[in-house]
Write a protein that binds this DNA or RNA. Structure first.
Lengths: 119, 119
DNA sequence: TTCATATATGAATGATTGCTCATATATTCA
DNA sequence: TGAATATATGAGCAATCATTCATATATGAA
């Protein structure tokens, strides 16, 4: 009876579930990154930096937001090693730490597009 | 002088930045998904559902959390089409809407691993 | 050194959010 | 139908968070 096989498989999966979950530390690292992505300002900063390195002021101008706000958000992104910075003349230029970051955004965009096709 | 070329390229990139950013609607959709991923409870739910479909009660037991809390979080995930549900006998089973979701998590895990190697 | 500019930072505040508790709804079973 | 079980939902509360405002720090120019 296939119905019972399904049930048995399910029970087995259920039993192993808890120990198959990533440990809290790893999960927390991931969740923190998603949290960083889950804010309009930071997402815009990331997309902007995907095009070219930018100074704090340039980002503030582009996004039409205060210097302070951008600086605060950059320090969060930096704390998570999502961006790095370097002085360039009078300014400090920020850049994405690695290309993975923009890939994750693109992947998510794909998910949304796929999703829209369902309707 | 290569320094000036750099500066000119930068000015050009800066000028085009604003109109190259994704429009707000698209960005908001992405940000909402990241927001959903950016919470330990929901992340755990997603990892659990990546293994097998589960009822609300099974998730609550596995994560050692209240039924109400899990139900609330599931409704958020469902609102974003990240999970779907179907009654199965007395219970309601939830499953991931598509496989993209777990790919995004794995991609992020890769980012973290790469990051750790830098130290 | 002094002034001007660019960035960082701390405190305060309003908004968002995750959980709990109580309760409503819905389905199965007897 | 009535009781039991599974899930959903609304209000309330504490915690988190993004922005602002004021100010500190740091660099470059004169």
């Amino acid at each position: 009876m296939p119905e019972q096989n399904f049930e048995m498989e399910h029970q087995k999966a259920l039993h192993n579930l808890k120990k198959n979950l990533p440990d809290n530390e790893d999960l927390e690292a991931m969740v923190n990154i998603f949290k960083a992505f889950g804010d309009m300002t930071r997402a815009k900063i990331i997309f902007a930096l995907a095009e070219t390195p930018l100074s704090v002021g340039e980002i503030a101008d582009t996004l039409d937001m205060s210097q302070s706000s951008i600086s605060h958000q950059l320090s969060i992104l930096k704390g998570l090693n999502l961006v790095s910075n370097a002085r360039r003349g009078r300014n400090i230029h920020y850049r994405l730490s690695d290309q993975h970051i923009i890939t994750i955004f693109k992947q998510t965009q794909d998910h949304i597009i796929e999703d829209e096709n369902d309707f």
